[in-house]
């Protein structure tokens, strides 16, 4: 071995070193991401529990079962509801804040930025519990609304489907707007100030500059934050679990939460069925990421 190594040419040595450097990370990704997703697909075609699983007949058994499962359909509706309402509001707010903070005449920029960015420092479980406590029936928000005379009796925010969903959306916007803002701030810093000067000379007003100069130049960043947000929302778990426990009556449960319950909740563990639902989430994430990349392709 020693002789062989000495016999290697310099170029070969470099080639070997290059491969050696990326091997551990590559192996881990294959074992921890690619192997399990293939495994999930195979399991999704099977029926039965524990070691006694057999391929289902028809193979699509678990997939057809999903669309007859009222709770799963509910969880899908909920997840997409969060997605459609929360992501656009959050991204628009994040761009707006970044644009405002990018003004060179603005004072206390750093302070504002730190404050708005701060929610990112809390864990998803932490802020879920904070919002759960704030919006409790005997909680701060109810007390304040009562003192202001806006309500005559306490609202059971988390016990009513509509308001429970609203609280989750508010919480999500609170937690993630600053996070996305940071991406836009980084993107805006790459735009030369002279571009704005030119727009001003051409007579563009504030909104026009924003719409025709800033937004097109930020397009790659917008696409990326959209992909990340969609990806994150489709996998929403901590908030559903800790803020509302999916309730009332599954009206706020997310797909990930339901899949978790099916896999690890009491008395269940139908791995084939669970895997089929999980694989569907994977397909959704992949399709949405693909659409997003196509839409945002800057080479057009």
């Amino acid at each position: 071995m020693e002789n062989r190594r000495k016999g290697m040419t310099l170029a070969n040595k470099q080639l070997a070193a290059g491969w050696a450097f990326l091997t551990p990370a590559t192996i881990l990704i294959f074992i921890m991401s690619f192997y399990p997703i293939i495994q999930a697909f195979i399991t999704s075609l099977k029926k039965g529990k524990g070691v006694n699983t057999v391929f289902a007949d028809p193979l699509t058994y678990n997939y057809t079962r999903m669309f007859q499962d009222g709770i799963f359909i509910q969880s899908m509706k909920n997840t997409f509801f969060y997605l459609i309402i929360e992501v656009p509001i959050m991204l628009v707010l994040a761009i707006l804040l970044a644009q405002l903070l990018n003004n060179k005449d603005l004072k206390f920029k750093g302070l504002f930025r730190t404050c708005i960015f701060l929610p990112c420092a809390t864990s998803l479980v932490s802020y879920s519990i904070i919002f759960k406590s704030m919006f409790a029936t005997q909680g701060l928000v109810n007390t304040v609304l009562m003192k202001m005379g806006l309500i005559s009796e306490n609202i059971n925010f988390l016990g009513t489907p509509g308001t429970a969903k609203a609280v989750i959306i508010i919480a999500l916007i609170w937690r993630w707007t600053g996070y996305n803002m940071v991406f836009y701030l980084a993107g805006l810093q790459n735009i030369e100030y002279s571009v704005y000067e030119a727009a001003k000379i051409d007579g563009a007003t504030g909104w026009k500059t924003f719409w025709y100069v800033t937004v097109p130049l930020l397009k790659p960043t917008i696409v990326m934050t959209a992909i990340m947000s969609i990806n994150g929302t489709l996998q929403l778990f901590d908030e559903s679990m800790n803020l509302t426990s999916g309730g009332p009556a599954n009206s706020t449960i997310t797909m990930s939460h339901y899949i978790y319950n099916q896999a690890f909740g009491q008395g269940v563990g139908a791995l084939g069925y669970t895997s089929a639902m999980a694989f569907l989430v994977f397909i959704m994430v992949a399709i949405l990421a693909f659409i997003n990349l196509k839409v945002g392709d800057t080479r057009d």
């Binding site: 991401s33 192997y35 495994q39 999930a40 990930s256 896999a263 999980a278 990421a289």
Partner: peptide
């Protein structure tokens, strides 16, 4: 150390970004 093969492998690795944690959770637990 990039060359054609490593760039292609990198492209494959990026696909792992699309794999959600909830989809790998059960097989990984097993």
């Amino acid at each position: 150390y990039h060359d054609k093969h490593k760039d292609r492998l990198f492209g494959i690795i990026l696909l792992a970004m699309m794999v959600p944690a909830v989809a790998t959770m059960v097989p990984l637990f097993v």
